[in-house]
Design a protein around this nucleic acid. Structure first.
Length: 304
RNA sequence: GCCCGACAUCCAAAUCCUA
């Protein structure tokens, strides 16, 4: 049922495990209780919500897991940092799809296991564009830019990854060269360039990219907001924030961490999490506001 | 028998951690 499917997706995206479990029991009571498509989406939802016990439970209830079930199980373990279980699953699955290989490759890549990732990549029976892109990202983030450069650019994601890789190594011209040579660009390409300039002190270029991009989303707005704050444009940052068509908790956090009026912004935030409280505590600590630190800290404990 | 067929893996935004 498409109805169940889209609600499950939404629960996964918003990490709403309560609603997710609610849907789960509705499915169990419905004619779809054996539906593997919905079972797979349940796996994904529980994985995103970080409930590995439920993931296992659902998986064990599937009579004949298909390739989607298996790779979602691996993805759930990888996403929650359980490399051991991801490996066990990978080893005991009957037929390993490219996606399963890729998903598991990500586990090694995220943990910076260079030899293991290289070995794995070499052993793969097939490699697709995603496999190569995982390696580009992996080499870049472990500081092996030369190795990353040797990889083929297969699609837009490869290019976007290389833009970020060059920018993180301070190589703006190279990043721009990739950007200019792309046959087509998406919002990620543009945002990556905005950030590339911003992080390398080229505020004007960042701004001009931001204005030129075909459309902005919440991430590009947030990147630009941070660009203002980072480069010392306090008023611009506040103006930016006020003009934004949409905001989420991360936007608010960037405002709190990047501007002078942190305490005020912190109070006005519609919601808080561990990160927002941590940043506020850091700010208050550096100013020696002992009482306020305790207040925020207690708030944070209450919440979790 | 063959082809096709919903759902999985990679890229851009926040603090620290991830042995």
């Amino acid at each position: 049922q498409d109805e169940f499917a889209s609600v499950l997706r939404a629960c996964g995206d918003s990490r709403d495990i309560v609603e997710g479990k609610n849907i789960h029991s509705q499915i169990r009571r419905s004619e779809h209780r054996e539906n593997i498509f919905l079972a797979n989406l349940l796996l994904q939802m529980y994985g995103k919500c970080g409930s590995l016990a439920d993931v296992r439970n659902v998986f064990d209830g599937i009579q004949h897991p298909n390739k989607f079930s298996w790779s979602m199980l691996i993805a759930a373990y990888v996403g929650n940092g359980d490399v051991q279980e991801a490996r066990n699953t990978f080893n005991r699955m009957p037929a390993r799809s490219v996606v399963a290989w890729n998903t598991f490759l990500v586990a090694y890549a995220r943990h910076g296991f260079l030899e293991e990732a290289n070995e794995m990549f070499k052993l793969m029976p097939q490699r697709d564009a995603v496999s190569w892109n995982i390696m580009i990202q992996f080499y870049s983030q472990t500081g092996h830019l030369e190795a990353a450069k040797k990889m083929p650019i297969l699609n837009m994601v490869s290019s976007n990854t290389m833009i970020t890789a060059y920018a993180q190594h301070g190589l703006l011209q190279e990043a721009k060269l990739i950007f200019d040579s792309m046959p087509e660009r998406n919002v990620v390409s543009w945002s990556a360039m905005v950030q590339a300039y911003a992080e390398n002190g080229q505020f004007q270029w960042a701004m001009s990219m931001f204005i030129k991009m075909p459309y902005q989303n919440i991430i590009s707005w947030t990147v630009m907001l941070q660009a203002c704050a980072q480069n010392g444009y306090q008023e611009a940052a506040v103006m930016m924030f006020d003009q934004m068509p949409c905001r989420n908790i991360i936007t608010w956090i960037v405002l709190v961490s990047g501007t002078e009026a942190a305490a005020l912004a912190f109070q006005k935030m519609p919601a808080h999490n561990v990160v927002s409280c941590t940043i506020m505590i850091q700010k208050l600590t550096s100013k020696g506001c002992v009482d306020e630190v305790e207040l925020v800290f207690d708030q944070m404990l209450e919440r979790s």
